[in-house]
Design a protein around this nucleic acid. Sequence first.
DNA 1: GTATGTGAATAGATTCACAGCT
DNA 2: AGCTGTGAATCTATTCACATAC
Lengths: 235, 235
Amino acid sequence: MTTDRTDAAAVAEATTPESGIADPIPEATLARLPIYMRGLLEVAGDGVTTVSSRRLADLSGVNAAKVRKDLSYVGTRGTRGVGYEVDRLIREIGMVLSGEVTPVVIIGVGNLGRALSRYDGFVAGGFPVLALVDADSSMVGRRIAGVIVSHVDDLGKVVAETGCLLGIVATPAHAAQVAVDGLIAAGIRSILNFAPAVVSVPAEVELRKVDLATELQILGYHEHRREAANPQQVA
Amino acid sequence: MTTDRTDAAAVAEATTPESGIADPIPEATLARLPIYMRGLLEVAGDGVTTVSSRRLADLSGVNAAKVRKDLSYVGTRGTRGVGYEVDRLIREIGMVLSGEVTPVVIIGVGNLGRALSRYDGFVAGGFPVLALVDADSSMVGRRIAGVIVSHVDDLGKVVAETGCLLGIVATPAHAAQVAVDGLIAAGIRSILNFAPAVVSVPAEVELRKVDLATELQILGYHEHRREAANPQQVA
DNA sequence: GTATGTGAATAGATTCACAGCT
DNA sequence: AGCTGTGAATCTATTCACATAC
């Protein structure tokens, strides 16, 4: 994707006229923008040039009012009576969502780390995995998805060389804090943690968490509850 | 925040002491219970018998008031001036979170599906993966993490035999809706979707979503934003 | 003194509903 | 007519603050 500052300024205009930085987009909206993006790319592929909030909502599994409010944070303007211009929307949401290619380092190449390093969706979304590190020396030197595994001690060097800006932690729980500390020492300030452990980071570091076991436990609760509610009925 | 369900019965009985079905635990609280559980198991291992909300909060990366309010929903009672009894808390949270072992079927054994089927955290959390299916015949018959892969056409049979109650979708995006429909036809009513696609389900089915690329995009936004804010860093 | 339990206050996200533009 | 843009209303979640109990 191209980065041009003229558009950046246009987006920033939302509420902050002079300072170059736009208002922060609500977390909940942010989480939906990539979904909208997928829908937009889909209809763009079909040659459609405008979408209504209703149509985009259907494609995204949300309601139309939410789409409109979300897009208002992005600073996009649609045309009343018509809808939104697909290409323009793709460009503008793309701008908001990092705009350019952002390389990623994964720490921990066990089952999960390997699966993540091969996950097509990352590179497709502009997040190529350019570095892999592990604490286990027997892993070092292996090639996974085209990337040679380095030792975790060389993390700083590898990050500097590849220019990675995002770090993914895919270690066991007991190694997670050390991994996170290492990433921060290497200059990474945005981290996605897959290890089932609570880790602490300084305030300036952005930490997100994906907790696979917890997801199942939440589902399990609902399943359980439903069974308790109607013990014999199968819809 | 993946699913909205309007459970008329549950809403109607806001304060039911012990008649039939009880608590509608808030979604946000539910998502934290497994985290508390991990902290509790940790301190229990150290022989500690009581915890304060403050201590549990520190272990879980949240604040103490939230812990207390959350625990009030699970119906637990602590002792003022002392704290909560660790064993009892573990037992009660365990009860809420499905209580018993809940087997899982994974549909799609590509990179991600294989990694998930080998993920220790699932079985440790009471969610053993007892069935694997795939649409690719060349995968059928393979043994992964001790489970033989079946063909997706046999999904109904496999689910019935293994008693799986939860389904995980780990297919490519274009196959996700078919996979979900298959799970529902097989009687599964609680689904965790890893495919980067919007899928629709009937209202009685609980659908949660884990979107890996989206997680990175959200991080990317924050990283991007931070760089725009202080442009003196790495180019 | 210490820590729970919970109403009340605050913040955040969703949905409604309608004025206003094309 | 059709559809956006957005204040206002609503629902959900978080945090505060303090009476209450040990």
